[in-house]
Design a protein around this nucleic acid. Structure first.
Lengths: 250, 250
DNA sequence: GAATCTTTTAGTTCATTTTACCATAACAAT
DNA sequence: ATTGTTATGGTAAAATGAACTAAAAGATTC
């Protein structure tokens, strides 16, 4: 990171147009980078968002996305993983980069550009960590989002828009459910995300017709009515269908 | 930009978890930010990409995306607009942010994080600028992409994947055509982007059935056969259909 | 001006998918 | 055994999509 820098931007960066820089190249290395994580989970029939309550200014008292500065020698995906793990203890979960936000005045401390990430977690895997900041962590329903710190509302809105598009074309909904789930749960999940309703019988036919699910031969328990079968998503089946030209669509 | 910085990251940034920083906050402000633009145009039956040929090391001789460093007091969207305008003279064109790329070692000069943008331009509006670097500018067919500088292949691949998804769900294909176009041209465009073919009669029925196009009452000229009608995309119609629950799908 | 060529445009049929229901089976609880 | 609730299987109508045929329109050529 501390390589010697030439003062000729053109020679080194090779950006061959734009104004010739009238300020030394060092002046360009004044940005900080952060990551902000939109951590989504599904429970109690709703899509929920993991947020922290800020105990310090600015924006004290408001809710904010969990995030952190990226270290100068750290890859940003790693920083996002770190934030997620510190908060939830979880690793190896679905995580995707969303957009980046860099308004000049978005942060009082200086030029901080933040990269949004979103991850989908299964709440049955999530155990709130008993660390110092765990008390400030809350699940918020995406339908009841309050005003958030900084530009975090914008980040969340973008993620939700992307998610709604993506969940229709990629089999990622399963990431939000336990390994074994009923078709009813899956349907409710899609209905919550897409804010719509499906015909139960047709939903079942459609999803089973894709041949992506394994019948675990187990049944739902502790329900006061006929228990539903438990299914699991078969990633291998999906991969092999993909090669044959299959495309998921909900 | 030169506000006084506290050495307590927690107090100022309010990132309430992660390691307590063992290095001073100044050390985090070592990043530079750049934008790289994937400028897409459609001509000669193919989707083309505007690239520059690097005249300097590193990656001398290779093709690269047009891009530039973002000034410390410049919004990144503005930087992307600036790059586009300097290269093509065009303003007010379709431009969308793609992903960001920040591998620690992606640039020899230091920690440069780049934000990808893609824009769709109508080549009939494009006039190559007669400036010093214009000689290095070339259109490259997306089907014949060579090895590019830095991580630019990755950026382009990402943009093309996104575009193919997006062009099916949003009426953005029109951005790549002249204001007035024939249905044949529109079909060829979709076929080029999605790498498929459509039945001509059915394509026509589908797109006209959406009621998004205006018949300009003009005809194609300078063709040696029956000229096709010229249509234009009616954005107002689209907006009002959207409100009624219409959703574009190709 | 007639014949020819190419492409646009309209229309028809058939297969497939989607949608909306209905009926029954299965299990838990009482 | 009865009741309640949900899962599950099936069917008919409606809408959509794919494949194809044929005619019409204008430019070009002779």
């Amino acid at each position: 990171m501390n390589k010697k820098r030439s003062s000729s931007t053109e020679d080194i960066l090779g950006h061959q147009f734009g104004a010739f820089y009238k300020i030394p190249i060092e002046k360009f290395f004044q940005f900080a980078l952060s990551v902000d994580c939109v951590i989504l989970g599904y429970h109690e029939n709703g899509l929920k968002l993991l947020m922290i309550e800020r105990g310090t200014e600015p924006h004290k008292g408001k809710k904010a996305l969990p995030g952190d500065l990226v270290y100068p020698t750290e890859d940003m995906e790693l920083a996002a993983d770190r934030v997620l793990k510190d908060l939830t203890g979880l690793e190896d979960v679905y995580m995707t980069q969303s957009k980046s936000y860099g308004q000049v005045d978005r942060h009082p401390i200086g030029r901080v550009v933040t990269v949004g990430y979103y991850s989908l977690i299964s709440v049955d895997r999530y155990q709130p960590l008993a660390s110092s900041w765990a008390s400030n962590v809350v699940w918020v329903d995406v339908k009841e989002l309050p005003q958030l710190s900084f530009d975090h509302n914008q980040i969340v809105d973008q993620v939700l828009t992307t998610l709604r598009e993506r969940v229709r074309l990629q089999p990622i909904g399963f990431e939000l459910l336990p390994k074994k789930f009923t078709l009813g749960q899956l349907q409710e999940l899609y209905e919550a995300i897409l804010n719509t309703t499906f015909d139960k019988a047709n939903f079942r036919k459609k999803i089973l017709g894709m041949n992506l699910l394994n019948d675990t031969k187990e049944l739902q328990t502790q329900v006061s009515h006929r228990p539903a079968k438990l299914f699991s998503f078969d990633k291998d089946k999906y991969e092999s269908l993909l090669k044959k030209g299959f495309s998921f669509e909900m």
